[in-house]
Design a protein around this nucleic acid. Sequence first.
DNA 1: GTGGTCTAGACCACC
DNA 2: GTGGTCTAGACCACC
Lengths: 76, 76, 76, 76
Amino acid sequence: MSTPPQKTPLYRKIADELANRIASGEFIADRSLPSEFELAAQYQVSRGTIRQTFSHLRATGVVTSRQGTRREAVPG
Amino acid sequence: MSTPPQKTPLYRKIADELANRIASGEFIADRSLPSEFELAAQYQVSRGTIRQTFSHLRATGVVTSRQGTRREAVPG
Amino acid sequence: MSTPPQKTPLYRKIADELANRIASGEFIADRSLPSEFELAAQYQVSRGTIRQTFSHLRATGVVTSRQGTRREAVPG
Amino acid sequence: MSTPPQKTPLYRKIADELANRIASGEFIADRSLPSEFELAAQYQVSRGTIRQTFSHLRATGVVTSRQGTRREAVPG
DNA sequence: GTGGTCTAGACCACC
DNA sequence: GTGGTCTAGACCACC
């Protein structure tokens, strides 16, 4: 009945790490997060992977997004 | 066989709403429309989005525009 | 009786030049044009100005565009 | 043969004052000047007057301007 | 004081 | 990795 072991996808690892960085208060000054471009460079991945990361973080209520402005960490 | 539903962009929704307001006679007094600035405030969007809205309305023959004066509704 | 000369905007000059490059067969291999980013670099303008350029070229039937792919020159 | 005394126009007074502020190094950090809007508020005049001011300062080589970016003081 | 042009940059939808 | 949409802001041309 147990599911076979799943390899954690890269976007999930990055999402967890970003969630930790947010929780630790790294972006507390103005809550606005690095851009897709900056994060892609930081984590050495494509922008598509970063977008998957944010899709997950948005779905779990960790960040909000709006076209034209940077994503922001949800307080609390 | 049918094409999937397309997400309607904001400028299109505003264009449709403005076209309805024009058709309902809201600007009938002198035909001159609110300024870009006023509409941006009314719809809580940027001036750029209002300009995309008017680009569409001009292309469909609903309004005319001239530098230095307010846009006007085309009669009929 | 003649209208005074109008200052030609930058996006119009670029549109005319691109139309000439297309007519001269520069992009004949696969008809696909340089990206917005490349053209912005070539002409030393912002992406917004290149988009205005293409808006004009699309309106005059010189190019076609589709999300996710490069714009193409219309044959003939 | 002497011309009658001329009242110095407001835009000229502001131009002279701004030229002095520039010469004194007030905008030396990045050379970019306050916006039309800010200067209109500072000097309690209309934006049209500020534009006349800059027209004069550009003609006399004190500032440069380019659409989309702030005016800048010319070094030296 | 309006619309027109332009900058610089972001995220979104689609390939 | 492209074009599409959107933000926020500037100066320009014309009224």
